[in-house]
Design a protein around this nucleic acid. Structure first.
Lengths: 206, 206
DNA sequence: CCGCATCCGTTTCGATACTG
DNA sequence: CAGTATCGAAACGGATGCGG
C-alpha cells in the first residue's frame, strides 16, 4: 500500500521530498538512470529493499510521473520501468547527493550495484577533451553497458555496444578496484585494446 | 531516540541518504541555510514536525557533523544550531531538489516558512549585473533578514542590515504575493525607497 | 517561556512466505 | 518472473509533562 504522507509545506524542496523523499525512492531512480529495468532487476540491484517496498515505490513514482511502466515488444513480453522526462530531471539531485556522500564512510559489508559502479566511473573519469570519441563495452555480472568517452565526458547506457574498441568483464567491486589500481588491468578479463581502459582509468585521481 | 537504519549500499548517493535521508532532516538543514536557529525557531518553521522528531534529527545531524550545537554569548545564553562546513555542502542538494519540486503541486493549506520564501526570492530574482550593490531589509513575521543584491545575485542572511536603502515588513506568503504582483508594493509596509523592491521583484518572470 | 523527554496510537518498514 | 500477503519491529505524529 503506497504511502501518502506529505509535508504540507509550500517550499519547492519539501514538495520534491513529497515525491521522492520516502525511503528507497531515489535509489530506485538511480537504478533507472542508464536504462529501463525490470522489477526483478531492481530487486537484484537493491537487495536491502523488501519486495513490497519496491512495488509500492514504483506505484508511487508512476503515479507521480517519475517512472513509466511499459511492456516490452512481443518476443520479450515482460514489463519494464523507465524514467519519464520528469524522472530524468532528478539527475542533478542524484549528482548533488553523490558529491555530498563521497566523504561519508562506506558501511560494512555494503553492496554495490552495477549502476553505482558506473556512476562512479562516469563521475570521476576525466577523459581529455582532445581524445577521439571512444566506445567500449563493460559487462558487470552479465549486465552489458556501453561506455562512450566523448569530448571530456563519459556517457553510459545499458546494452551491448555496436562496435567497441575494447570490452571488459568484471563485477561492480572489481571495476572499483581496477579504477583505483589500473595496473591490475593486465590480470583482468579484457578483449580488444586494454590501453583504452588504462588511459581512461588513469584520469581518475586518488 | 535517533534512528539507526542504513542502506548498506556503497554508492555515494545511498551514503548521503544514510545521513540526510530520514524524514525532516533536509528541511531542518533548509531552515539553517541563512543562519543559526534555536530549537523553538525550528519548531515554528516546521509546524508539521513533532518535537521529538526535531530533537532526534538534530542529534543525528550533530553526530554526523552536519550541524553544530552552540551556546550563544552570555546575555542570550541559549543554544543555537548551525550548519557546519559539511552541512553547507548540502546547499547544492537543496537547490537541485527545489528545481525538481517547482512543478509539484502545492499541497492544500500548506505552510511557508520565512526561509522558504526568501529561498524562492533568491532563486528566482535576477538583478542585472550592472546594478550597484544594494542592501535592503526584509522582515518576515518578526524575523529580520538582510538581502544584498550584488553582481547579478542575491545574498540573504539572518539579521538586521547595518545600512539599508529600504525595508519591507510582511509575511512569507505576503512576500510571495508581492513577488508575483509587485504593483501591490504601494500598499505594503515599506520604509525607504520602494523602488528597490519594485525593480528587484520585476526581474522575476511569471 | 524554552528545550526538550515521555507516552501512545498509527503508519511505515523489513523480512519472509506465498500466489498467478 | 512479477509481484501480494502477512506480521513483528521500528519510525512517525500528536499530545502532554516537566525541569530549569
Amino acid at each position: 500500500m503506497p504511502t501518502q504522507r506529505i509535508y504540507g509545506d509550500a517550499c519547492t524542496i519539501a514538495r520534491a521530498l513529497d515525491v521522492v523523499g520516502e525511503r528507497w525512492a531515489l535509489l530506485i531512480v538511480r537504478e533507472l538512470l542508464f536504462g529501463p529495468q525490470r522489477y526483478s532487476d531492481l530487486r537484484h540491484a537493491l537487495p536491502g529493499a523488501s519486495s513490497n517496498l519496491i512495488a509500492d515505490r514504483l506505484r508511487e513514482l508512476d503515479a507521480n510521473g517519475v517512472v513509466l511502466r511499459r511492456r516490452l515488444p512481443p518476443p520479450a513480453a515482460s514489463w519494464v520501468y523507465e524514467l519519464t522526462a520528469r524522472g530524468r530531471r532528478l539527475e542533478p539531485v542524484l549528482y548533488a547527493l553523490g558529491a555530498f556522500g563521497s566523504d561519508v564512510p562506506v558501511p560494512r559489508d555494503a553492496y554495490l550495484s552495477a549502476t553505482s559502479a558506473l556512476l562512479y566511473l562516469r563521475q570521476s573519469a576525466r577523459p581529455e577533451h582532445r581524445w577521439p570519441v571512444t566506445v567500449c563495452g563493460i559487462q558487470l555480472e552479465d549486465q552489458p553497458f556501453t561506455v562512450r568517452s566523448k569530448q571530456g565526458r563519459i556517457e553510459v547506457r545499458r546494452g551491448e555496444p555496436e562496435q567497441a574498441v575494447a570490452r571488459l568483464q568484471t563485477t561492480p567491486w572489481g571495476l572499483m578496484e581496477l579504477i583505483s589500481d589500473p595496473s591490475r588491468l593486465s590480470d583482468a578479463d579484457v578483449a580488444g585494446d586494454p590501453g583504452v581502459f588504462q588511459r581512461l582509468f588513469a584520469t581518475i585521481a586518488g
